[in-house]
Nucleic acid binder design. Structure first.
Lengths: 162, 162
DNA sequence: GAAACCACCTTGAGTTTGCAACCGGTTGGA
DNA sequence: TCCAACCGGTTGCAAACTCAAGGTGGTTTC
């Protein structure tokens, strides 16, 4: 694949500079969906199946996802994050923080971005360890950032102030 | 404009989730190009003029750039960053950091990403103050991050180790 | 008065997107 | 043994977008 330039920002954009790739990664990262059907059904933006199929293949080709069969279900395919996509956590946090500040998201979806921003590098590291446990068979971490995000989201959905 | 969802990451993607918008912002932010011609000529990825025209208009419409005529040259247009696009500095730093780590950029272009990552929030804040001075008539800051990046880039281009 | 420069537009071919319907194979329950 | 539900996708199609090349009308400089 010919690169437009060797600039790091450009290389990042060439990898997932479109309107869907990061959405798919977000769903796998925060939404716990790991299969084609789960991603298709769980996506709130309403991704089309052909676009999802294309992006999953592309992300696997770029090394941001790995693809393995489920031993129990011969036709089920499970997608996992890789070290490269887990490395996107800080960038996701910053993107969420920007959207939170300048684009007025819905409150219950914005709370996760706020927690992720406020937590800073320490929380990102804990979350990345958790993702390594879930996707790369890393050791089980003491802290569950996923649980904290989930709890805050549910509280917010009930209309509480966090 | 109908939003696909209220998720902050999605809203961010809807604003500049394509292969060129951030490239244009990068050139204005780090490359000091402020006019159509300068952006067209200075862009190392070879952006086409119609794409540049489209993205400039779109970025202005989204509030990421402002557009003003040059009093000295009636037909010259000068584009400036806004508070919202200056707020992208941390995200740009993170994107550069990811590209640096996982995409092996060219050394002379990678050095800026490394400096920006290593500098952390303190350096980002200094850079943002400098951009406010250059684009929003803010007070002149004591530190010139732009100069530091430039110096490092030139040293790297000469083959020195930084 | 001519040449260079200015922001941007037009054209036309090729690519990508989004939607809806569909596919053959697998699984779990009756 | 049958069947409905589920599995990861694929196909056809129209609309939208992308791109390079070349051009536009006007302004500034020499």
């Amino acid at each position: 694949m010919p690169r437009r330039s060797g600039c790091p920002i450009n290389l990042t954009l060439e990898t997932f500079g479109d309107r869907w790739s990061l959405i798919v990664l977000r769903d796998i990262m925060f939404g716990k969906a790991r299969t084609f059907r789960a991603l298709l059904a769980g996506n709130i933006e309403g991704i089309a199946s052909n676009i999802l199929a294309d992006r999953l293949a592309r992300l696997v080709a770029h090394g941001l996802l790995s693809r393995q069969g489920d031993p129990a279900h011969s036709q089920r395919v499970i997608y996992s994050l890789t070290e490269a996509s887990i490395g996107l956590v800080p960038m996701m946090a910053m993107m969420g923080a920007w959207g939170l500040r300048y684009r007025s998201p819905s409150p219950e979806l914005g709370i996760r971005a706020r927690l992720l921003e406020d937590g800073g590098p320490e929380l990102w590291a804990a979350f990345m360890d958790e993702l390594r446990h879930l996707h790369l068979a890393g050791p089980e971490p003491a802290r569950s950032v996923m649980g904290e995000l989930q709890t805050a989201f549910q509280a917010m959905s009930r209309g509480e102030t966090v």
